[in-house]
Simulated scan of single mutants.
Amino acid sequence: MKIPVIDFGAYSLDEKEVPEEPMHNLSRQLKAALTEVGFVFLKNTGITQKEMERVLDKSQEFFQQPDELKRPFSWANFNNPNHGWVFNEEERLNPLRPPDLKECFNVGLLQPDIKWPPVAEFWEVITSFFHRSKELGLRLLTAMAHSLDLDPQVFLGAHRFVGTNKNPSIVRLLFYPPVNREKVKDSQLRCGEHSDYGTVTLLFQNNEGLQVRTRSGEYIDVPVIPGAILINIGDLMQRWTSDQFTSAPHRVLLPAAGASNTRLSVAFFLNPDDEALITCVDGSNKYPPVTGHAYVMKRIYASLQ
């Protein structure tokens, strides 16, 4: 099985609206991918390879700094796990494994007057990317609603405050440093098996290492497709759609023995508003109602050491 690749050009950020027939074709392909796999590559989204590389460059500039220069930007200093630096082995996404061999910088607060890393144009580049990813995410939600014959406001109405303190959506910069095999703990990975928490995730990556679990339980390698964005369903969206859309587990493996390569990626986690009440769209009681804030923050705190 391979992860499907879908041309999103008809509804890219460069288009103001999409005619009925292209939307029908797009939503049909999305439904097949998100119900059968839970992951899909989107190409021709309007977010360019140059934009992706610019964010990855700023991310690398931050992570290359010594830990003592990154420590003032720890999430603990913001008293908010949705914003700030998460140091190597501070997070454990699979509770059955040792902590993950990765660093992160979460951007959930966008105000220019808070403390930002001393990286040139860091705030400008990351916040611009946040808003571009947000707009693409909302377009994706519209197409997803169309694929289930729903009014788009069913999804969009729960994401009115993305980019404010009333919504926990974030841009997450991820860095996987070189691995010293002599120090790796038994069963430790760069990122343990997990599923994402919220609505949808947009992932931008510069090299391989990510694997996705198929419905049969097999893990498959995820390629890097220049210019394409990897999309996956989060657990809240699976609940919301009564399991019509699939939130698939995924992980990041250690590099091959003897390899010293690093890995960079940037994820945009689109989450429902804090007070949005998520109930099954089919009217069933398959999952109990839950607010976006209660569900997402519970999962975040559970992952931290």
Rank of each mutant, 00 (worst) to 15 (best):
residue 3 I to R: 04
residue 4 P to L: 10
residue 15 E to H: 07
residue 15 E to C: 12
residue 15 E to A: 14
residue 18 V to F: 02
residue 20 E to L: 11
residue 22 P to Q: 03
residue 23 M to A: 13
residue 40 V to S: 03
residue 41 F to S: 05
residue 43 K to Q: 15
residue 47 I to H: 05
residue 56 L to R: 01
residue 58 K to W: 01
residue 63 F to A: 02
residue 65 Q to Y: 06
residue 66 P to A: 02
residue 68 E to A: 08
residue 69 L to Q: 15
residue 81 P to M: 11
residue 81 P to H: 05
residue 82 N to H: 15
residue 83 H to Y: 10
residue 103 E to H: 01
residue 105 F to L: 09
residue 105 F to A: 03
residue 107 V to M: 06
residue 108 G to W: 05
residue 110 L to N: 05
residue 114 I to F: 06
residue 115 K to C: 10
residue 116 W to N: 01
residue 117 P to M: 06
residue 119 V to H: 00
residue 120 A to N: 14
residue 128 S to I: 09
residue 135 E to Q: 14
residue 145 A to H: 08
residue 146 H to K: 13
residue 146 H to R: 14
residue 150 L to D: 10
residue 160 R to P: 01
residue 161 F to E: 15
residue 167 N to H: 08
residue 168 P to I: 09
residue 173 L to M: 12
residue 184 V to G: 01
residue 190 R to M: 01
residue 195 S to Q: 12
residue 200 V to T: 12
residue 214 T to F: 08
residue 216 S to I: 07
residue 218 E to D: 15
residue 219 Y to D: 11
residue 219 Y to Q: 04
residue 224 V to C: 12
residue 227 G to I: 03
residue 231 I to F: 06
residue 232 N to Y: 09
residue 234 G to V: 08
residue 235 D to W: 01
residue 236 L to S: 07
residue 244 Q to R: 12
residue 245 F to P: 01
residue 247 S to D: 04
residue 248 A to M: 07
residue 249 P to H: 02
residue 254 L to G: 03
residue 257 A to Y: 13
residue 264 L to G: 08
residue 266 V to R: 00
residue 268 F to S: 03
residue 269 F to W: 09
residue 270 L to R: 00
residue 275 E to P: 01
residue 276 A to S: 11
residue 281 V to W: 14
residue 284 S to G: 06
residue 295 Y to Q: 06
residue 295 Y to H: 13
residue 298 K to I: 07
residue 302 A to G: 10
